[in-house]
Every structure is written in C-alpha cells, then in structure tokens.
Write a protein that binds this DNA or RNA. Structure first.
Length: 270
DNA sequence: CGAATCTCCTGGAGGC
DNA sequence: TGCCTCCAGGAGATTC
C-alpha cells in the first residue's frame, strides 16, 4: 500500500508528463472512494505544468490554477495503457500518450482543486511533511506529548505527521528502539528526536529504493516495473522470524493495534 | 475536544 | 477443484 515513498516514486515517474496537453478524460464509473467531481472534464485542453506531492496525495498541476488531486488508496496505480476491469480513469494526451488509473479496491481518490491547496477539504488538516527541514524532534514531541494513544497510532495520525503508513510505522519504531505500545505522551524529547531521525532515514532509503509494496506486489511504478524490496524490512511481515540484531535471540512479534498489525521485537524495543 | 470504532472494496490465502 | 471465511489497510465518518 502506498505510503510516502511509494507516492513520491510515482510522482517522479509521472514527471515525464509535464508539458503534455490533455486531450480528454474518461471515467468508467461515477466514483472511487468519493464521487468524481462533476467538472472533471474541465482538465481537457490544459497542459500539465508540474506534479507535486503533499502527504500521500499526488497534485497534478494544470494550467489556469487547476490541480488534479489523486490518492492511491490501497491499490491504486498509474499505468500507460489499459489493464482490465479495474481501469477507472483514462486520460489521453494530444501527443497520443495515455495515462490510466487502475484501482481494484477503489479506495483511491480523484478530485479537482480550484485555487490553493490549503482550502481543499482533504489537505487543510494535514500535519507537517516528515522530510521537511522544519520537522524535527521538538515538533514531534510537542505534537504527541499530550496524546493518550500508542506511539504507533500517533505515527499513523496524519495530523501529527504525514506520509507514514502501517509498514513504515513498524520499521521506524524498530529502528528507534521504541515499543509500539508505549504511549505517545510518555515519549521523551530525546526519544522523539530519535524517532524523527529514523523516520527521515527510513523514508529516504525507501525512496532511493524506488518504493515498496505489499507482498503481492500490487504497487507498480509507472513503467510497470515492480517497486518491491521485501528484504528491506527489518520487522514488517516477519512474525516468528529472528530479530535481525545479531546479539538478540528474540523472535519478531505481531500484535494488533487499532485493528492494524504491528510488528516489533520485544527485546530491542522498550 | 480526543479516542475508539465503523466503513468502503476486492483479491489472495488458508481451511476443508 | 470449489466454496467459504478471513485478512490486508488509508483515512473520513460516526459515535461516545
């Protein structure tokens, strides 16, 4: 499932579309997670002038201050040709290129932003970007020091920090040596600093690796190449396997928090 | 206000 | 081989 690194990888893959003029857009159904905007056709005739990312949202910038917002949900992906029954959005370009949004589970989102991002309902409440220079241990500590939830849940809360999903939350906490069950309000300033640094590290490494996906490789980079590097994971989906630390004899555990699997090492994470 | 729960959806895995 | 159940999970909506 796409988290920040996967979305960033998709963004980079889409950059070759910048400068192209849209000929037409076709939707094969009325909605994904939400209904498509009624004026979705208004992107036709406009050129793509840039592609940004905010949290896990892709922001396809068009002429005349119009932005096509896209969220990949769980299983959304962009391709250059039709794949089958789950193709929901087909964008054709004047030069003959084609962009197809495919999403079996339809948790994705496609919407238009007229004007500034901050005014859009889905973007207005988002927290800081984890890779931004202004996100540090202090900022994280202040955001969680009164929160009566587990640190795992806090890292998934997009109002605290954006872009982290279920996989990287486990990875970050393992590398930080913090138990996922520890309450956010009990995280020291120093530990918050470590979590912050590991977050940046993990996300950057994943971006360099080209993103990752679930075990079935549902996520594809735009050229169709799989972007899945399971060996990168230290704990995620490794229940019952040995902790990777050479001096640790423990096995990776799995617990369910807020209905989501969390993987951790009880020996290394306190 | 914060926190917990419910909800959307389909494909894949496992059980028998 | 087929059918059933369960599970994966982002994040808004709902409830308390």
């Amino acid at each position: 499932m796409p988290e920040l690194p996967e979305v960033e990888t998709v963004r980079r893959g889409l950059l070759s579309l910048v400068g192209k003029q849209i000929l037409s857009i076709e939707v094969t159904r009325p909605d994904l997670r939400f209904p498509f905007p009624e004026d979705i056709d208004s992107i036709a005739g406009r050129k793509i002038i840039g592609i940004d990312r905010r949290a896990k949202y892709l922001l396809i910038r068009l002429e005349d201050n119009l932005t096509l917002l896209s969220h990949l949900g769980m299983t959304g992906r962009f391709g250059r040709s039709l794949e089958g029954k789950h193709d929901h959005v087909i964008i054709d370009f004047v030069d003959g290129e084609r962009l197809v949004y495919t999403d079996p589970r339809r948790f994705g989102i496609m919407d238009l932003i007229h004007g500034s991002d901050e005014d859009h309902k889905l973007l207005s409440h988002l927290g800081p970007e984890p890779l931004g220079d202004d996100w540090n241990g202090d900022v994280l500590h202040k955001a969680i020091r009164k929160r009566n939830v587990s640190i795992k849940s806090a890292l998934l809360d997009q109002k605290i920090v954006v872009g982290i999903g279920n996989i990287y939350a486990s990875e970050i906490l393992f590398r930080s040596g913090v138990s996922p069950k520890k309450l956010a309000k009990n995280i020291s300033r120093k530990k918050a600093q470590e979590i912050c640094e590991e977050t940046k590290h993990v996300l950057l490494i994943a971006i360099e690796a080209g993103g990752s996906t679930l075990r079935d490789g549902q996520f594809k980079q735009i050229d169709g190449q799989l972007g899945y590097f399971p060996h990168e994971f230290t704990v995620y989906d490794r229940e019952g396997e040995s902790c990777i630390h050479p001096n640790c004899q423990k096995l990776v555990k799995r617990v369910v928090q807020s209905g989501r699997s969390t993987f951790y090492c009880a020996g290394c994470q306190r």
